[in-house]
Design a protein around this nucleic acid. Structure first.
Lengths: 138, 138
DNA sequence: TAGTAGATTGATAATGATTATCATTATTAG
DNA sequence: CTAATAATGATAATCATTATCAATCTACTA
């Protein structure tokens, strides 16, 4: 894999770290261009994925593909597989206090309408798949 | 607006409600085609948005546009404006018990790596904007 | 130092999801 | 029945992202 960061990757990391909103890949591209004018979009995407994989930055939104629809409108929570992107309903509620929600919403300045807990991890299928791959190359 | 559901909308709603995974718009389209063969993609998208707006179904993922990146990798939570799609860091942690997380992850069958609380509502700007629009149309 | 295998890069084309356009069809009012 | 209006669907356009591939940059060797 890629262990050391070259100048392009450093610049991308710097941009993402120093921006206090959550920039899109294209926004990162525009910002990085100012300091590394020859970089291309493809490289920015490659580097962003690489940095996310190394845990140096985090990807938000886009659970990997298209928008998904849910027929169950009662509030409920989700589990998301970080490997295959599977989106599962949680059969149980992760309970959290009204008070904590209220104060968090106030701190962020939003009028709270609903909330959702997301659990990230590996689904059963991916866990097995990855374990096998690991032992095969190990 | 659209208060009553016509045959197409009924069919779309039925498909979304009866599917226990979380179908994408295209998957809904394919399923609806079987019962309403003349429907087009554009209508499916229109109907899905309309149903979501009426609160009959729910949209997941895709907070409206491109994937966003976050330079802060410490676990933290987010507030999302349902009107403009703004994605804000919560400055405070919404605390929830290890035990609740663990049992929820187990119930869903995933190996838990991380989690996130998402608060949905209106940001300050949109709150004001919508209030003004409301009072204007009376 | 020149030569070369292999990796990295970036320009560009391709893809996939979603949205806009617009002529056609259905619906309603008169 | 006819005109006005709204809804529909085929298709083109758009936007984010990914694949392709030739050009460039590294090591490393002779």
């Amino acid at each position: 894999m890629k262990e050391t960061l070259n100048a392009n990757a450093q610049a991308v990391l710097e941009v993402v770290r120093s921006s206090h909103n959550h920039p899109t890949a294209l926004e990162v591209y525009e910002a990085v261009r100012k300091v590394r004018p020859r970089i291309g979009v493809a490289s920015v995407y490659r580097i962003l994925h690489s940095l996310a994989q190394q845990g140096l930055i985090r990807e938000l939104g886009r659970s990997d593909e298209a928008c998904r629809y849910d027929g169950h409108i009662e509030r409920h929570d989700h589990a998301i597989c970080t490997a295959c992107g599977a989106l599962l309903d949680l059969p149980v509620e992760v309970r959290l206090s009204e008070e904590a929600l209220r104060s968090a919403a106030q701190a962020a300045g939003i009028e709270l309408h609903s909330h959702e807990v997301r659990l990230y991890g590996l689904c059963t299928a991916c866990r097995q798949r990855l374990q096998q791959a690991e032992s095969a190359e190990g």
